[in-house]
Amino acid sequence: MTTQINENQFDATELEAQFAATIKAKDRIEPRDWMPEKYRKTLVRQVAQHAHSEIIGMQPEGNWISRAPSLRRKAILLAKVQDEAGHGLYLYSAAETLGATRNELTEKLIAGKQKYSSIFNYPTLAYTDVGTIGWLVDGAAICNQVPLCRTSFGPYGRAMIRVCKEESFHQRQGYELLMTMMRGTEEQRASVQESVNRFWWPSLMMFGPPDDDSPNTEQSMEWGIKTHTNDELRQKFVDMSVPQAEALGVTFPDDGLKWNEERGHYDFSTPDWDEFWAVVKGNGPCNEQRVAHRKRAWDEGAWVREAALAFAENTAADAADTDTAADTDTANTADTTNTTAEETAK
């Protein structure tokens, strides 16, 4: 089959006008719509980074599945990390509607050509970090992600609706774990404070560099890919988190943190942007380890993925060879698999 590219049939300016009108009306762009190439590229980059973050994000918490201190917590943690695999999957699917396959994107991730959220380049040094990540990291992620449910590209927004619903459970489980630990022993309370001290600043950095240092923000907001600036979201997160910390009985490691009556917001100190850029550029405590882990899983899975394809081809070839009633066979198989799904689901 050949692709016919016949742009002359359509007036390019008319298409652009139509695209702009859709964005302006806050309507969604859908996969078969014409879109500016730069819009598509920006989206692929953002969705891919987001998907990678979910997948790489499985590792810091996955680090504690084997050591979770109760069976209930083990189940919760395993289910949570599993959810993250699901989120990555939904997001890669959204990227596929833009023509970027999961394989391509994964290859780029493990070659270091695409990024993921820097927060996952920090180590998890205590089981308590599972709670802190749930509360602060997932909390920051929710601040970032909720507006994305309304992002201009349909499949991305739909994926985000699913993701956000599950993320809010994640944040609650994290906060609830910390609350439970604060009711426990003195050592447990100390562990919570220690963990919060380590994760507070990296959480604030999750919103990205300050607005005057974020070159893509303006265009992304115009296209409705992004709906709030980095600094707006960061402020919102700080305002949300302070009363939560008070309720929990922990403090944030920032002497400059205080309520500003005039602004109606909390003031806070400037994050260490040198550390931020060092981590972004690959010198974070865990950058190499995270990418190497993902690469190992991907490389070691290659023979399995190949085998399944070969099996599918072999089976299809066998079916085609057998007899003329192949169509009926296929129909039967489909029925059977459908029944299986319904029955096992009960």
């Binding site: 599945i65 289910a79 999957l89 890669y92 899975g301």
Partner: peptide, 24 residues
């Protein structure tokens, strides 16, 4: 559950976690 984040593809990662959760 040791397979978590190390399976051949995301779908298999999720499937193995489901099995581990059932057994747990």
């Amino acid at each position: 559950s040791e397979w978590c984040s190390s399976a051949p593809d995301l779908e298999e990662d999720i499937a193995l976690a489901n099995i581990a959760l059932d057994l747990l």
